[in-house]
Design a protein around this nucleic acid. Structure first.
Length: 221
DNA sequence: GACCAGGCACATC
DNA sequence: GATGTGCATGGT
């Protein structure tokens, strides 16, 4: 039942928008940095910040970790919340350097559940950021949930509010096959559709999901 | 000028 | 355990 709905939504989104080729970043470490920078921030702002880091050749765990927090903050200023995000980047890099010699390859043998717990233990890494890192940088089959997902899920009656992150994530993970590429594309399509048609208070006119059952309930996290 | 954006931690009740 | 607040730039 739910599975059929989820697949129908996916197919509708894919038909309209086509493959999204996510994550919009070139390397795993760039994706990880982007995942922190995009917290409550539009990606166009994040791109400016990434560009600044790249121009200083700082997109490596060691180099960025050895950069003054104040300098990182200045470089990532366009992404907003720059002071706190500079600290969050350092927290994550510190974890990576301390436990894995700063090498993402060394994460490969680690069990996904355990890796997720470790990420959540880092100050500044919450559920969505952890899952974005797991899926998009580390190719783990974890479904990423965000504000758009919550909005679309409530509007299309996939789940009854109130619900939390884990409950919504379970809707997808328990009803779809555990497939990295599927989870990648599905979340990317949700964000694409969310940006264009499911903004807060926006009506659904023109949305590829317009003809599917929907209401105007709202919930975010 | 208000509202929003691919959140999270911390304070307070 | 639920609810409120600070963090901050840039686009619409």
């Amino acid at each position: 039942m739910l599975r059929e709905q989820l697949i129908e939504i996916y197919n509708s989104l894919l038909e309209r928008f086509g493959p999204q080729h996510w994550w919009p970043g070139e390397t795993p470490i760039e994706i990880i940095i982007g995942a922190i920078l995009t917290q409550n921030t539009s990606f166009s702002n994040v791109e400016k910040a990434i560009h600044n880091l790249k121009s200083q050749n700082l997109l490596s765990p060691e180099k960025l970790y050895n950069t003054e927090t104040e300098k990182i903050a200045e470089l990532i200023r366009p992404a907003g919340y720059f002071n706190i995000k500079a600290k969050r980047l350092k927290n994550l890099l510190n974890w990576l350097l301390e436990n894995y010699q700063g090498r993402l390859e060394n994460l490969e043998p680690v069990d996904t559940t355990q890796l997720r717990e470790q990420l959540l233990g880092i100050s500044g890494i919450g559920a969505e950021t952890a899952d974005s890192i797991l899926l998009y940088a580390l190719q783990r089959p974890v479904f990423v949930v965000d504000a758009y997902t919550a909005r679309i899920a409530t509007r299309h009656n996939l789940i009854e509010p109130p619900f939390d992150y884990f409950q919504l994530q379970s809707i997808f993970q328990n009803n779809l096959s555990e497939d990295v590429q599927l989870f990648n594309e599905y979340h990317a399509l949700i964000v694409r559709c969310g940006k264009e048609y499911c903004r807060p208070k926006a009506r659904c006119a023109g949305c590829p999901l317009e003809k599917l059952p929907h209401n105007i309930k709202e919930q975010s996290f």
